[in-house]
């Protein structure tokens, strides 16, 4: 109820009311952007752009779930950026092997692991492995998996975000999970022990 009042005030130009909505959703928006873009800096820019766009277009909000409406703006901004990157690809700065003159293999999920306490280390490994597998998913599958399994959206909210029918959401989510599971299998032994334990109840 309070959210509806804030939205109404924001529609009439109350910036403070809108900023309270920003505070409520900025972490979710940033995390969705990070998972879709796999780049913190890009995700930060996209999140800011998405909030500005949301404020400008608040008049177009027709009720329903504000969270879904806002996340739709975020995912669309991510898709726009991904398309822009595809149109203008950049050269990866991979180290080159001097003997073979070929790029040295340096998987993104293995890189950038700074020395840290054990838990942080495990979390970093898990994070890199999952992000690596998420990046291999098709865009539509990825958004649905991120929204349901990482952000806890229900099916109807996801349907509003990606503008697809419920049946499509169910199907893509299941297929996305299967693909993710197959990808994660190759990293299974690298994951922290608590994730490798088999369920003895079966």
């Amino acid at each position: 109820m309070e959210e509806q009042a804030l939205i109404l005030d924001a529609v009439h130009g109350d910036l403070d009311a809108f900023n309270r909505l920003v505070l409520a959703y900025q972490q979710m928006a940033f995390n969705v952007a990070v998972r879709l873009m796999a780049d913190d800096d890009l995700a930060e820019d996209i999140t800011q752009t998405a909030f500005i766009s949301a404020y400008r277009n608040l008049g177009g909000f027709r009720g329903g779930s504000f969270k879904a409406w806002l996340m739709r703006i975020v995912t669309n901004a991510c898709y726009d950026e991904l398309r822009r990157v595809k149109r203008h690809p950049t050269t990866a700065l991979e180290p080159v092997d001097e003997e073979s003159d070929e790029e040295m293999e340096s998987p993104a999920w293995l890189a950038d692991i700074a020395p840290s306490p054990e838990e942080a280390f495990e979390q970093a490994e898990l994070e890199h492995a999952i992000q690596h597998c998420l990046d291999n998913l098709p865009e539509d599958f990825k958004a649905i998996v991120v929204l349901v399994d990482l952000q806890g959206f229900d099916y109807s909210e996801v349907a509003q975000v990606v503008k697809r029918p419920l049946g499509t959401i169910k199907s893509r989510l299941a297929r996305g999970r299967i693909k993710l599971q197959e990808c994660l299998r190759q990293f299974w032994e690298l994951l922290p022990a608590k994730f490798r334990l088999e369920d003895k109840s079966l």
């Binding site: 900025q26 972490q27 940033f30 994070e127 999952i130 399994d149 999970r177 599971q181 994660l184």
Partner: peptide, 24 residues
Amino acid sequence: HELRRMRNVLRQLKQKPAPRNFML
């Protein structure tokens, strides 16, 4: 069981804190 385990792995991912405030 495998699907459930995979979903649990995903849910173990911690939310990243917002790097800054995005208020307008």
